[in-house]
Nucleic acid binder design. Structure first.
Lengths: 334, 334
DNA sequence: CTGAAAGCGCTTACAG
DNA sequence: CTGAAAGCGCTTACAG
C-alpha cells in the first residue's frame, strides 16, 4: 500500500494525502479527517525509506558502547530508549567489545546518513580519535557519555569522576588503608583518567607514598584479570585496599580473594564503581560508588535530540556532570 | 557525494559505478578496481535509504524485549549483535517494559518495512497476540526467543524450561523442602508456563500437596514485590522453599529475608533462574538455573537471518531448545 | 562490457 | 485549499 493507491481510494491527489498525513496547514480540516480515518482503516504507514530519502532525516540515532553485559550500560540504554520512544526516534545499537577497530568500522558505517545522530561511550583502547572527528566533520551530531575524550569538542555527559576518585580513596584511607591498588580497565588510562587523578591527588594530599606499581592495568578478559590480581595478592606485602574503577574488576577481586582465602575487609578492603543491585547482598556487602546510569542515558539522549533538532542552537553545555553516590558497606569496614 | 558526482569523476555512467560497487559480473575487473579505488579515495558510501527504497530491503532487524537491565536480555542482545555485525545487519532495539500496549505500538511501527525481520521476547502481560499475528501476515519474518507464545507458528528459541522446572523443584525437595512457593512474574502465567508446569508435575509426582496459594504472581515493581513477599514470609506457617522463576525475584527474596531476619538456607531455601555473575558471591551463595543467554541470542539471530535470506526454505525447526544448567550452592543446602 | 531510462514511495516548491 | 511535477539517490531490466 502506497500513497498512490491511498490517494486513488479517496479521489484525492497524492500530494493532498501526503500533506494531510503530515497535518499541513494547507489542507482543510475536513480533508485531514477523511484522510486520517482512511489511514486507520487501511492501516496505512508511510514508507520510512522514501520519507528519509526525501527529507534527509532518518529519525534514528545510534548508540555505540563498549559492552552491554554491564549494568551501567544496560541502564544507560534504558534511559536512551525511553527518551527516544517519547520523541519518536529509533535506536540502533552497536557494541565495540572495547575494540578500537570495531569502533572505527562502526563510525565509518554511520557516516552514510543512516542516523541523525550518534551517542558514544568510547572503548578503553581508543587513543586516536580521527574516526570520531570524521563523524563530526560529516556534520553528524555527536554526544559522548561516560567514556569521553577531551580531544573533541562535543557535549559530554559524565559523572563527577574526579571527585568520586577522591571520595573513594579518602574512604579507604579513613578506614586504615595505606597501600591502595587502583584497578583500571583502560589501556591508555585516558578514559578513567579522572578517577585515577582523584586517587593520585588524594594519596599525595594524605602524604601517602605514590607507587606506580599499584596502578594495575587490567584487560577485558576475566581469566586474564584473575591472573593479574592473583599475582598482586599473593605477594607477601600485598595491598590493603583495592579501588576498582569498574564493576567487573571489583567482582574479580572478590573471586580471587575467595580463591586465595584472603578475608575482606580484614585482610583487604574493597570499594568499586558499580551499578550492581546485589552489592548489598554480597559476602561481604560491597562498598560502591554508584553512577546514575539511567539518568545519564536520558540526559545524553535529550542533549543529542536538542543537537539534532536545533542545529545552530548553542545553549548546550559542553560538559554535563551528574553526581555519583558513595555507599559504605562491609567491604571497607575498619 | 552521490553516485552521479562519483560517476562523473570517473567518466563512467551511474549504472556502471553502481554495478561495480556491488561487484556485478557485468563489469570488467579493471573498471571494478578503478571504482573501488575511487570509492575509498572519496570515502563514498551508498545512501542506505535510496538503496533500501529501491531494493525493498533494509538490512536491519528489530529486537523487542521486555527489559534490558537484566543479565539474560543484555547477554542475549550481545549474541544477536555479534551475529548481526558478521552478517552486515543493523540492530534496532525496542523495550516494552512488560507493557502490552508498548508491545502493540512497537509492532505496529515495525509493519512499515523499516526492518527485514523481528526478534521478540514477549511481555509478561501478553495474552492477545493479534499484533504479532499482524506482523507475520504482513510478511515480516518473526522469531521468538525465551518468552514465546504457542499461539503463533514461528521459530522459537528457548531453554528447556519444563525440564528445568522439574530439576529445580526436585532439588528443593531433595534438600527437605515440603512447602515450596513458585514466584512468577507473569500476569497470565502463559509465559513461564513451562517452568510452572515442571514445578507442579514434580510436586504431584512426589505426592506433595499442591497449593494454589503458593504460586505467587509478582509484578514489575520491586517495592510491590517486596510487600507481596513480606506478607508471604511473615506468616507463621511460611514456605520452606522458594523457586524464583526470574532473577529479580530471587534477589527480592534475599532482600526481604534480610529485612525479616529469616536465615537462608536454614529457615528457607532458595533457587532461582539467574544469569548473575555474583550468584556465587552472595551471602549465602545462590543456587541457580542458568540459561545460556548469549547462545540463545546468537541462535535466534542466526535463525532469523536464515528466515530472511532463504524465504521459502522450510528446514527451520519450529522449536530450538538449548539446555540450562543447575548449579547447587549454599542457598539450598540441607 | 557499458549506458539510458524507469521507478522504488515519498515531500515540497510552485502554480492555480 | 488542491494538484502536477520535480527530485531525493539508488538499482536493475533492457537495449546496444
Amino acid at each position: 500500500m502506497n500513497l498512490k493507491q491511498f490517494a486513488k481510494e479517496l479521489n484525492l491527489s497524492i500530494s493532498a494525502v501526503s500533506k494531510a498525513l503530515r497535518d499541513s496547514h494547507e489542507i482543510s480540516e475536513k480533508t485531514k479527517q477523511m484522510v486520517l480515518d482512511k489511514a486507520r482503516e487501511l492501516n496505512y504507514q508511510v514508507n520510512p525509506f522514501a520519507s528519509s530519502l526525501r527529507k534527509q532525516k532518518s529519525k534514528t540515532i545510534a548508540v555505540v558502547i563498549p559492552e552491554i553485559d554491564n549494568n551501567f550500560f544496560a541502564l544507560a540504554i534504558k534511559g536512551v530508549e525511553m527518551i527516544a520512544q517519547e520523541k519518536g526516534y529509533h535506536v540502533l545499537i552497536y557494541l565495540t567489545h572495547e575494540d578500537v577497530q570495531k569502533e572505527v568500522s562502526v563510525t565509518k558505517i554511520l557516516q552514510n546518513g543512516r542516523v541523525d545522530g550518534v551517542m558514544i561511550s568510547v572503548s578503553s583502547q581508543t587513543t586516536d580519535i580521527s574516526h570520531l572527528q570524521g563523524l563530526k566533520e560529516n556534520g553528524i551530531p555527536l554526544v559522548f557519555f561516560d567514556r569521553v575524550t577531551e580531544k573533541i569538542t562535543a557535549p559530554k555527559i559524565t559523572t563527577d569522576d574526579y571527585n568520586s576518585g577522591i571520595k573513594a580513596t579518602e574512604h579507604l584511607i579513613e578506614n586504615g588503608c595505606e597501600k591502595i591498588a587502583f584497578l583500571s580497565v583502560s589501556e591508555n588510562l585516558s578514559i578513567s583518567n579522572k578517577r585515577l587523578a582523584g586517587y593520585v591527588d588524594t594519596l599525595k594530599r594524605n602524604k601517602i607514598n605514590y607507587d606506580d606499581k599499584l596502578i594495575i592495568r587490567c584487560s577485558q578478559n576475566i581469566e586474564e584479570n584473575k591472573k593479574i590480581l592473583k599475582k598482586l595478592l599473593e605477594k607477601k606485602i600485598k595491598p590493603d585496599g583495592i579501588f576498582a574503577s569498574v564493576e567487573s574488576l571489583a567482582l574479580t577481586t572478590y573471586e580471587v580473594c575467595n580463591e586465595l582465602n584472603i578475608k575482606i575487609p580484614d585482610d583487604i578492603k574493597i570499594i568499586g564503581f558499580s551499578n550492581l543491585r546485589t552489592a548489598s547482598l554480597l559476602s561481604p556487602s560491597l562498598s560502591t560508588i554508584t553512577q546514575p546510569a539511567y539518568e545519564i542515558g536520558r540526559e545524553a539522549a535529550s542533549i543529542l535530540f536538542t543537537l539534532i533538532e536545533k542545529s545552530g542552537y548553542n545553549g548546550i553545555p559542553e560538559n554535563t556532570v551528574i553526581k555519583s553516590t558513595l555507599t559504605e558497606r562491609k567491604s571497607t569496614r575498619k
